[in-house]
Design a protein around this nucleic acid. Structure first.
Lengths: 158, 158
DNA sequence: TATATTTGCTTAACCAGTTAAGTAAATATT
DNA sequence: AATATTTACTTAACTGGTTAAGCAAATATA
């Protein structure tokens, strides 16, 4: 077993390990898409699945549900529009809003996408098979941070 | 309780949740540093703690131990040098290598840094107090990915 | 009714990471 | 001894996030 400096750091390494894990998965998904000739980015599946479920949504609402800043949502959604996966229609009642929907291209390619996403889902299931508490632990971590931010907790320790 | 779309996605949302959690922590740490007037970035503590432990190291070795690409290490380390926290000396035996060490400034400010890092460590400890398995579950996830990448697993499901 | 505030989206400048291509020094090979 | 390969670091172009500032439309207020 080789040395793992981040593990050596124990509590001081947790943040970095979470980042490493998250990055590892993202780049792995990117590779997978490339290999399967899907011209999409990791994280786009969130938008597509959301719009499959609820047909149409505004940029702000998508930002909200995905817990991104509006600026991040703007960039991602405009790129998806530019790639032809989404269409945006100005809301007639409120001219500021852009209603976002799946394009015909997206609907057409959806089955191909879902095949790959389901394989990804199975992989996560595999990984967590012997690790049944992981999702609960993750939720617990999320809940704790929602209760009180890391920053606030740290300030109280100073 | 408000809606959490990422949780609704179950296994398809895990990656995004890990990213969200990791980002949340990073930006929280950034805020904390700003508030405590520490002119460092999140993740720099990894380098400083490493060099406190082992005095001197090359860029490649640091990249390796932190599990970053060499390009990422170059950028980070050069910025830290530029900020005056590190010094780099060319290895006399091998002129390609740059030996990296803590500067006097870094050593001087170390106690101030460590106070904040310890508070951060305590916060993580708090958060994980009722969640004793988290670190083990995290290790398990990491180990599983080391055994076989996400991508490879997904390909086997296709 | 005119003005002030809020809301929805955009843009700019920054953060941290990646891969790919490039340079120069050390090492291996022929 | 000359050439080819590997190694250490750098740079460029891209990913996807952030905050801050700005614009225009809708809404609230005086």
């Amino acid at each position: 077993m080789e040395r793992d400096f981040l593990k050596e750091l124990e509590f001081l390494g947790v943040t970095a390990r979470l980042k490493r894990l998250s990055d590892n998965l993202s780049y792995s998904i990117k590779d997978l898409y490339q290999q399967k000739d899907l011209d999409i980015e990791p994280s786009w599946h969130l938008v597509i699945l959301l719009l499959k479920k609820q047909e149409s949504s505004t940029m702000s609402e998508i930002a909200d549900l995905l817990q991104l800043s509006q600026a991040a949502a703007t960039k991602m959604l405009n790129k998806m529009i530019q790639k032809g996966y989404l269409i945006s229609v100005r809301d007639e009642k409120d001219n500021r809003k852009k209603m976002i929907q799946l394009s015909d291209k997206a609907k057409l390619e959806l089955p191909k996408f879902e095949k790959v996403w389901n394989a990804g889902q199975s992989s996560i299931r595999d990984i967590l098979q012997s690790n049944t508490d992981f999702l609960n632990n993750l939720s617990d971590f999320e809940d704790k941070l929602k209760e009180k931010s890391f920053q606030q907790r740290a300030l109280e320790h100073l």
